[in-house]
Design a protein around this nucleic acid. Structure first.
Lengths: 337, 337
DNA sequence: TCCCGTAGTCGAAGCGATTCGACTGAATCG
DNA sequence: CGATTCAGTCGAATCGCTTCGACTACGGGA
């Protein structure tokens, strides 16, 4: 292994000069710098990560805690992870992957052993057991999602409440008077994952405000559940013409289920989903949707973390405004009432 | 930060004794060990990862390179990643996440900086540009998937050739005489990802051997493509009664497309998929399938890596035998010919 | 002219662990 | 019973890098 002293000798300078040339923390003359860089290339030098971490007390690694549970849409998680890695690399950081299972002990471990400089935690619950720990940890963290009490933490997410409202607004502007929200599986509500409730809240509030009839139904993510839900909605609310779906795997099955029941989308029923843009675009009939911008959230989470690592101020909460794209599943209500 | 000298002082021993008590590399008396363990708990000591890595030249981190491209089924990748993390933790290792994008330079970086002890590389191509690098790297690696020339490397994967054959065998035993394979998107074949070809090869060879009529069609992963494919198969091969689908997102759409064309599964058409068991089980009509055991592969890849790290011998190639589970989408051919 | 600040470099002291060699007693053996 | 082993422990060196303080030389301001 070639080390910094080898480079120093080769370039005819001291090791510290090489270090400063690399880090830029002290001025180095252009000639010296070039000579050093040439030596580095010639020898194929790579600083030893452990030694660096030990001496500088910075590992240049951030932890990413990913969920892997029922109701979390896997592609979203994956895209998020990839965008975090990409963004982290732009700042010369690497990403250590942790699973939810590791729990608080896992977080404490990677933080206390100085394996990571900072943490990104996904799928935060309203009353997440990890919150007290994250508050006391000496390493900065960014949460994806908002707990009930977010003071003292840095959180970022799509503004799901506004997203729910945006869907209603869109439907209302198209003339729909009775709308339903088909939401995440019941488990997601039970474990108090904020975003599901927030969508429901924004949805209901917006509907009330505009005097629409509205209802909220959690729903499992299977085709069978979709069929039942469609049948039930039709039976219980024959006047329904606007549907908001916040449950990625259910969008297509629901459309088909309604089709089978004789309701065509968007002619008889307008549907707007809250889902990733790619999914909405790639559907056989492109779906009007509010995007879940996993990539943006991931990238922005890393930026926030980077600022915290640099001791720059960051907002405690970042809510990305919803972006609704109209596609082919919504249309004005056919007027007959 | 509490360090090993603090623990040593607290327990009334020397730092090296603490180290040996922790690593077990030298005998330590029971009493001393207990005293040390008590001190560790009392002080909340955690060994500094960087210092440890520097002194021992082991980082206890493995790199995992994940693909993120067209045709890779995301849930499979994700499940794989999770199982790697879980298995790695069992061996007291952490996982550093790299994306395919980082390419060879990324591999070299994490290996040469001693950030990781070993590497797991997914989505290996037949003529993967990273192979020469992996061969010369001083750190052990395990590949998921088989390149054209795998000598000197450690590879593991489902035996896709046998999987393709197993599907044909199952269909043949049910009396089917004309079978088709609907495969991965054309891109996957073009970039020479081995598994797609292997399935096709096993499929064709088994069909030939049993004297079945057979055909192979790559197919994009959209509903529209599924519809077209169904129509085309029906038109070009009216005698078709057995279908093998090696394209996860296409299974359901294909079944529905055939349904729409008046062919019922399994009465008129038997279908066997190559896909994760969960997917096959959760479908509205459970699908007869050969499992893609991502979790097993991931766990086994880690075991192989661990053995290599311990300088134990490992097989150069590990092919997991296919497991076919009969569910509700295959049935004996209705005899009329 | 004297002083000071700054650019540019060096030497040495850590950072917090692991590990090697050496030491001490007690047990074992022929 | 002396020699040998082995369990159990310690001290010191080492891993490869960063960083602090010090030093030189030079330029500008007073």
């Amino acid at each position: 292994m070639v080390k910094i002293t080898d480079v120093a000798r080769h370039a005819g300078v001291s090791p510290s000069t090489v270090s400063y040339a690399l880090s830029g923390k002290r001025p180095i003359s252009a000639e010296t710098r070039e000579r050093i860089e040439a030596s580095i290339r010639a020898l194929g030098y790579r600083p030893h990560a452990g030694a660096r971490a030990l001496a500088s007390s910075k590992s240049n690694v951030v932890a990413l805690v990913v969920p892997f549970r029922i109701g979390m849409h896997v592609p979203v998680v994956m895209q998020f992870a990839v965008s975090v890695v990409t963004a982290a690399r732009r700042h010369d950081h690497d990403v250590l992957l942790l699973t939810q299972e590791e729990g608080e002990e896992g977080l404490r471990r990677v933080a206390d052993t100085a394996l990571v400089d900072a943490l990104i935690v996904m799928d935060v619950q309203l009353h997440d057991a990890r919150l007290p720990l994250l508050r006391t940890l000496d390493r900065p963290s960014v949460l994806i999602g908002f707990p009930a009490e977010s003071a003292g933490l840095t959180c970022i997410d799509l503004d799901f409440e506004a997203a729910g409202a945006a869907c209603v607004t869109h439907l209302a502007e198209l003339g729909h008077r009775c709308v339903a929200l088909v939401g995440s599986p019941p488990e997601v509500y039970l474990r108090e994952t904020g975003f599901a409730q927030r969508v429901a809240h924004g949805f209901t509030a917006a509907a009330d405000e505009r005097g629409l009839t509205s209802m909220v139904h959690p729903c499992g993510s299977t085709q069978t559940a979709a069929r039942e839900m469609a049948r039930r909605l039709l039976r219980e609310h024959p006047e329904l013409t606007g549907l908001v779906v916040h449950n990625e795997p259910l969008v297509q099955p629901l459309i088909e289920a309604f089709q089978e029941l004789g309701l065509r989308v968007p002619d008889d029923l307008s549907l707007v989903a809250i889902c990733p843009d790619e999914q909405a675009e790639q559907a056989p009939v492109p779906v009007t949707s509010v995007a879940i911008p996993s990539a943006e959230i991931g990238a922005e989470a890393v930026e926030l973390l980077k600022r915290k690592l640099d001791d720059l101020p960051v907002p405690e909460s970042t809510l990305l405004p919803p972006r609704l794209t109209r596609r082919a599943t919504t249309s004005p209500r056919s007027t007959y009432g």
